[in-house]
Design a protein around this nucleic acid. Structure first.
Lengths: 385, 385
DNA sequence: GAATCGCTGTGTATCGATACACAGCTATCC
DNA sequence: GGATAGCTGTGTATCGATACACAGCGATTC
């Protein structure tokens, strides 16, 4: 006998009868305690206790009232990312703080990157959504729009009618690029995935042939210089404008802008694209970036995790930072300062809180501004003498 | 005009009419797609698309079906702890993995440590609960029992009728104690909070005067030896049996057992109690533990975070580890290995996954066992020559 | 060729609460 | 002293779906 008889749920009507009051009095005793007299409330509580009434059925309540008391969070990644990725975790902490302040539960919608994600969003019993960075063409965003619920998107994509919170990633990337590419001759970039396919690869930069929204399939091949010849047909170059992740796109553009500002050609920049935000993958890619005749002497990484991978690769190769290699990360995570890593500081926790407040409609001063603050933190990794 | 007209929700009946089918056909098209013909399903989908029907109302569905599709998680701490504490985060990652595998949403109940927590639990629209370590007398646990829903408690307290998952903390603490107290003369312990009051203090050990369940209020004063005299009335000693957190209680008992095994008296052990699981607070307390005539030469810390605080304090005091001080942590967090910290390894991620599977009733082999594996990882911090 | 079965579509009762409107009563106000 | 307002209690309609039972129909079985 594994126990737990499926004990039938006690209903509000039964409590009302036992307490000798009407159903509405019971309802008010729970939902609007000020609406009933102290005495009635006490009688209701007593009867509820006696019968083992667990309180109003949440489903019934939400059906009638239209509120669920849940804030939904959707990630553009697998659900576990909320707890595995340090940056996502900081963001979620801010969301959680606001939820706790307002007595709202925090519901993580179980996305996994598969086709069922849309259904998971549709089934979510929430009052509003917060969306963590995803791709422009992610159908999950359309599903959220279809619910008609308030939603706030962090990082991207922008959508008509949905609120949007993000830093000016392009401007920040320009600042990073100026810092890390100064005096460099063979710049490199360690990038987040370009699109939902999340393929990892290394290629030179390529400009989009026509409009800034040209489809990736038709993007020009890398404008290779001599060195990459002889290794078969070169893979298509990395076109910033073709990335469907707004954050990635803007950062690539910013790096390109900064390099162009030194008179450099984007097609000379080597770009390694990671499939995940992990130091180990970054280390492997960085090993390629830092070796051979094209070995980079400056790398802009889109995340501190990636930058730490670069540091490990550099150490194994006997390269000194910033002597042989200048390096920038992004996010100023806890490990950045000890590693002496120049990086972009932004408070993801604050951004999470702002997203949550906006979604819940409990704005604090400044929450209406779309853009959030960032700053370049200069450390030893770009302190080339 | 801030937009978003409160567009009325399209109902299933309207979709049915537009598609020329019955309401039930629409319901099946969503809930049991195999129950209707391909043609009917296509017509329903088309009509839904045309009318902007976002899918079945989750509240109505849950009211009728009795299922919510949510797994509730309750922490014995503030909600943000789920994202701020490294150990809690690992646990949550395991819970999230199982949720994602089964298409269940993960609902974090917004507890804050206040009296409203009980209501938050009662209002939670979930199918089952997972509870992260809390105190024996936490009313939240009673509220969970009252819902009649399946629930799994991780760490404690144990409750009749609720599943329970934990390591044998006492046995593990004995292993730790044997390791860290070997050859020690003035042992110390850095403990998690003893009870929900979470007061931080330092005192010597005290045994419970009568039964192992004696109320803390009547616990004996510290059996002080001479050194602590002259500083006013000594505070009550630390009685392991009086802690209302099962995990803390069992670990203190284990440390006591281990010290007793060397012929030592618990009353000679200095115990510092942290109010939070943070390295900075631990550092401050450790500074006291490691100075004065009673300065400890061996410290067992209940968490790696705390142990890292001890390391920092030791470094500032010019103490060498393990020369002047042996030290153990707990959990084998990412920072433990680089720091050379002897610790207890256990996979909180696996434990989270097991809790979630048990709560959802989707057991995997081995999930029925209450106890989980642990092992002592010996590193340099206890390698006294 | 009758019996049976699976597949598909339908109608109705029902899940358990809250919104709303109304009624009785007491205190307050000019 | 009549009007008004606030407080408290009640009854009914309703929120939007799903469980259940049943019916029609073609295919399968012996």
């Amino acid at each position: 006998m594994s126990g737990r008889a499926a004990r039938r749920r006690v209903t509000m009507a039964e409590v009302a009868r036992a307490a000798g009051v009407s159903v509405m009095t019971v309802s008010y005793a729970y939902g609007k305690p000020g609406r009933v007299s102290d005495e009635a409330r006490a009688r209701v509580r007593e009867a509820a206790e006696r019968l083992g009434y667990p309180g109003p059925h949440p489903g019934a309540r939400s059906l009638r009232s239209g509120r669920t008391g849940n804030l939904g969070v959707v990630l553009g990644e697998h659900l576990t990312y909320a707890f595995d990725d340090p940056q996502a975790t900081r963001f979620m902490s801010g969301v959680a703080q606001v939820c706790a302040d307002h007595g709202m539960a925090l519901t993580l919608v179980p996305v996994t990157g598969g086709p069922a994600d849309v259904d998971r969003v549709t089934e979510a019993a929430v009052d509003a959504f917060v969306v963590w960075t995803t791709a422009d063409d992610d159908p999950v965003v359309d599903a959220i729009v279809a619910t008609g619920l308030p939603a706030v998107i962090h990082g991207g994509p922008r959508r008509e009618g949905l609120s949007f919170v993000a830093a000016d990633d392009r401007a920040a990337a320009v600042a990073v690029g100026r810092e890390v590419f100064a005096g460099a001759r063979r710049p490199g970039v360690l990038s987040f995935p370009l699109d939902r396919a999340r393929v990892s690869r290394i290629a030179f930069g390529a400009s989009s042939p026509d409009s800034p929204t040209s489809p990736p399939a038709t993007s020009a091949s890398a404008s290779v210089d001599g060195a990459s010849s002889g290794t078969g047909p070169p893979p298509a170059g990395i076109d910033p404008d073709a990335s469907t992740f707004r954050v990635t796109r803007q950062r690539l553009r910013g790096y390109r802008d900064a390099w162009a500002g030194t008179g450099g050609d984007w097609a000379a920049v080597r770009v390694a694209v990671c499939s995940t935000n992990s130091a180990s993958e970054a280390e492997a890619l960085a090993a390629e970036l830092l070796t051979g005749p094209e070995a980079c002497d400056a790398v802009a990484a889109m995340g501190d995790e990636l930058a730490l991978g670069v540091l490990r690769a550099a150490a194994r190769l006997g390269l000194t930072v910033p002597g042989d290699l200048t390096l920038c990360g992004w996010d100023d995570s806890a490990a950045a300062a000890p590693a002496g890593l120049t990086t972009i500081a932004q408070s993801l926790r604050d951004q999470g809180a702002r997203c949550a407040r906006t979604a819940l409609g409990v704005l604090a001063p400044g929450d209406r501004d779309t853009e959030v603050a960032w700053s370049l933190v200069r450390r030893q990794s770009t302190a080339r003498s």
